[in-house]
């Protein structure tokens, strides 16, 4: 038996919206420590992972580990039936073939329950090695969203470089070129509005903007985002979900042949 109640149900809706375009059919691994998912996108270019900790839920019960095969598009359709202030409860039996979702309005005067059919999904787990990052940047998630969106109107790929000058995003396309450089800041009113850059060594990597743009769908989940760059390795883009867990995206670089 699995049962989890999330007071801030809108977080589940935002999480599914943040990953559903990259991954359509995924396995959720449920254990008494929480809910985990890892999935590659259809073209196997990026990896998406999330963790929702059991202690982030109002109530969490999992008698034995379960794997729930979920079509995220269908789950997103169901979550559209929930109100933005609803409390969401998820339930599944150990050998059941459905996930029950219950939406309770704030005043608890309206209750919706929906059964989502589960699927059997074959997926392989990739091991993510501990990486020694060349550069780690923390910035407002709205800033990241704007950079990748603005550069997408210039080109399809972006060069990201970290130097002592800051972190530079460069795109080149038929209409011209664009560079956006972010420098470390410390003057913002709120700590999360600052840009923090920790650079161990200069690094330059090339990525497809289409995916970096897709990662920005997680913007509503967190006010900040961390971007980890490592020489010749995938970029890691992390959104921490306050008091609940995280969603992480990894994108393989484009490399000169």
């Amino acid at each position: 038996m699995f049962e989890a109640r999330l007071i801030q149900g809108s977080l589940l809706k935002k999480l599914v919206d943040a990953i559903k375009e990259l991954c359509t059919e995924v396995n959720w691994d449920i254990s008494n420590s929480g809910i985990n998912m890892q999935s590659m996108d259809g073209s196997h270019v990026c990896l998406v992972a999330f963790n929702l900790r059991a202690d982030g839920f109002d109530h969490f019960r999992c008698d034995r580990p379960l794997t729930l095969g979920i079509n995220l598009g269908n789950l997103a359709k169901i979550l559209k039936c929930s109100g933005s202030n609803d409390i969401i409860t998820m339930k599944a039996d150990d050998n059941g073939d459905t996930l029950t979702l219950m939406f309770e309005s704030e005043k608890q005067d309206r209750i919706t329950d929906v059964d989502l059919k589960l699927m059997s999904i074959e997926s392989e787990h990739l091991g993510i090695p501990d990486q020694d990052y060349s550069a780690e940047t923390s910035m407002p998630s709205s800033e990241y969203q704007r950079i990748v969106r603005d550069l997408s109107s210039i080109g399809d790929t972006v060069n990201i470089s970290a130097t002592k000058e800051g972190i530079k995003f460069s795109a080149m396309g038929d209409i011209g070129t664009a560079n956006i450089t972010l420098r470390q800041t410390s003057s913002a009113d709120k700590e999360e509005e600052n840009v923090k850059i920790e650079m161990k060594e200069p690094v330059l990597l090339t990525f497809a903007l289409r995916y970096l743009n897709n990662f920005a769908k997680a913007t509503p989940l967190s006010s900040t985002v961390q971007v980890f760059l490592t020489k010749d390795l995938p970029v890691q883009v992390n959104y921490n979900i306050q008091d609940l867990g995280y969603v992480k995206y990894y994108l393989a670089p484009k490399i000169e042949e």
Partner: peptide, 14 residues
């Protein structure tokens, strides 16, 4: 020309 790498080039199955 730069080529898009697959994620499995960097991370291996567990």
């Amino acid at each position: 020309m730069s080529a898009q790498k697959k994620i499995s080039t960097f991370f291996s199955p567990k």
